[in-house]
Simulated assay, not measured.
Amino acid sequence: MDNGETPDLVRSALTDARKLSRTLPGRRARTDTESRRRNRRDNLIGRNRGGYSGPGTDTSSDPQRIGSLLPAYMEERGWDRPLSEARVFADWLALVGADVAAHCTPQSLRAGELRVAAESTAWATQLRLLASTLLARLVTELGPDVVTKIIISGPSGPSWKHGNRSVRGARGPRDTYG
């Protein structure tokens, strides 16, 4: 076999294969336009099942506003209570009012017990008188289980007790000087 016969051999094999594929039963040759239509149809399968959704909102396929979806998402995840507890500290001014918030700050919230520190003993006394009103306002804004009790403390001096292993009866740093 010389180099001159090789291209003719390949061409004749290709021609025979094409003839054989056209003559197979149940198979017919496709035109270019039919082939393009079929490819487009195959590519679009599952894309737009119902067609155009129309001018109204369709909750299954149209994008939704996050504000309408977020409350259900938070409830599903169980984030309602932690977010309400965080609101006590973040929205303190709006929850209790500007006058009260100017003279006290929330310190901690554990098991429904809110600890509030007043800036002076006079404000601590005033807040103790207003405690039931503040509690009612917090319950209406945050829900009945977030804050169940308010403990108000006035200003206090520095504490020399640090940690669980401090000495009882010690007078602070001055008892070590002799």
Results as ranks from 00 to 15, higher is better:
M74V: 15
R11A: 15
R38I: 04
S108V: 04
G46L: 10
A72D: 12
I45N: 06
G56N: 09
S84E: 09
L69W: 05
V96E: 03
T140F: 00
T33I: 13
G67D: 10
R28W: 10
Y177V: 06
R37H: 15
L9I: 12
A117K: 10
Y73S: 06
G51F: 03
F89N: 01
Y73C: 01
R87P: 00
F89Q: 02
R37G: 08
E85P: 02
A29P: 11
G67C: 03
G154H: 06
L83T: 11
L142K: 05
R174F: 10
R171Y: 04
N43W: 13
T23H: 10
R49S: 06
G154D: 09
R137M: 01
L24Q: 15
L135A: 09
S132N: 13
Q107D: 12
P25V: 15
A122R: 14
T6R: 11
R165T: 07
W123C: 01
S53W: 00
L93H: 01
E113D: 08
V146F: 03
T23M: 08
R171L: 12
L114V: 08
I66E: 01
T6G: 04
A98E: 06
V10R: 11
P158W: 05
I66Q: 01
G143F: 09
E119R: 09
V96C: 02
F89I: 00
S153R: 15
L134Q: 08
R128F: 00
G50P: 05
T57C: 00
T15G: 11
L95M: 05
A90K: 04
N48A: 12
G157Y: 09
R28I: 05
L134P: 06
P158Q: 11
D62E: 07
G78F: 01
G26Y: 09
Y52P: 14
R137A: 05
D91E: 09
G26M: 11
D32N: 12
V96A: 02
P106H: 03
R37E: 13
P55Q: 05
V167Y: 08
S60N: 09
T176Q: 12
R47H: 12
L9E: 13
V88K: 01
A102P: 10
T33L: 13
E76A: 07
S21K: 09
T125E: 07
L83W: 03
L142G: 04
M74I: 15
G4N: 12
V100S: 06
Q126P: 00
T140N: 14
L9S: 13
V139L: 03
A72N: 11
I151Y: 14
G51H: 04
E76T: 07
E119V: 15
G67P: 01
V146Y: 01
G169T: 14
T148Y: 02
P25A: 08
L20Q: 12
L44M: 11
V100C: 04
Y52K: 08
A111R: 10
R165D: 13
T105Y: 12
W92E: 03
D58R: 06
Q126I: 00
V167S: 08
L134W: 04
